[in-house]
Structure formats: structure tokens, C-alpha cells
Amino acid sequence: MNARRVYVGGDDDSQEQTQKSGHAYAKLSGGSLGGLLLDVTGWSPEEREEGALLITDKGLYGPGGRAFYAPGTADIDGPFLWHGDTP
């Protein structure tokens, strides 16, 4: 497995992890967290379809802001696309 960086919350680079065997990941595409992977192990299909608001200091609203990522169209197993930032 080619290890890639995994989002773990916030923007402290020292907290970033690499992929773990047996885990499911969605690639984050676009926005301030684009290129990272999101661990979706154990998420139901409904939770995956809903997406996630992820904490990021690198987004439009700075510290404490969040970036919204969700799968595109009906492909819940595809990448999570950036849909914008929120305070």
C-alpha cells in the first residue's frame, strides 16, 4: 500500500497519519484539505452520502472554520468533493 496522508482533525501537521491496513478511506478533492484522505471506516452509507464538516484553519474562515466535503452525485464510494467553507 502506498501510504498517503490522512486527515485527523485540525491542521497540526504533526498529527497527520498515514493509511492503516483494513481501513476505508475517501479522498478529499478540492478546497483547503484536498489531497488528504478521510478515514470513513465504519460509516454507514447514509453517513457517507451526507458527508462531513471538517475542522481546518486553512479555509476561508481561518482558525475554527470548517470545510464541507461530500461525495459527488450518487457515488458514495468515490472522492469527497469540497462544497465550501463555513465558520
Rank of each mutant, 00 (worst) to 15 (best):
M1P: 15
R5D: 15
R5V: 13
Y7T: 08
Y7L: 03
Y7H: 12
Y7R: 14
V8Q: 15
V8I: 14
G9R: 07
D12A: 11
D13W: 06
D13I: 05
S14T: 14
Q15E: 10
Q15K: 14
Q17H: 04
T18Y: 12
T18Q: 11
Q19K: 07
Q19N: 10
Q19D: 09
K20C: 10
H23L: 04
H23G: 03
H23W: 11
A24F: 11
A24P: 01
A24I: 11
A26T: 04
L28I: 01
L28G: 05
L28T: 00
G30V: 10
G30M: 06
G31I: 00
G31N: 01
G31H: 09
G35Q: 09
L36H: 12
L37Y: 05
L37W: 07
D39G: 12
D39P: 01
V40Q: 07
T41K: 15
T41E: 06
W43N: 13
W43P: 05
W43Y: 15
S44K: 12
P45A: 08
E47W: 04
E47R: 14
R48V: 08
E50W: 04
A52H: 00
A52C: 06
L53Q: 09
D57S: 15
K58D: 15
G59T: 13
L60P: 00
Y61K: 14
G64I: 08
F68L: 13
F68C: 03
P71Y: 04
G72R: 05
G72H: 10
G72K: 11
G72F: 00
D75I: 03
D75M: 03
I76Y: 06
I76D: 02
I76N: 07
D77K: 09
G78C: 12
P79V: 00
P79N: 01
L81I: 09
L81Q: 07
L81N: 06
W82L: 02
G84I: 02
D85Q: 04
D85L: 01
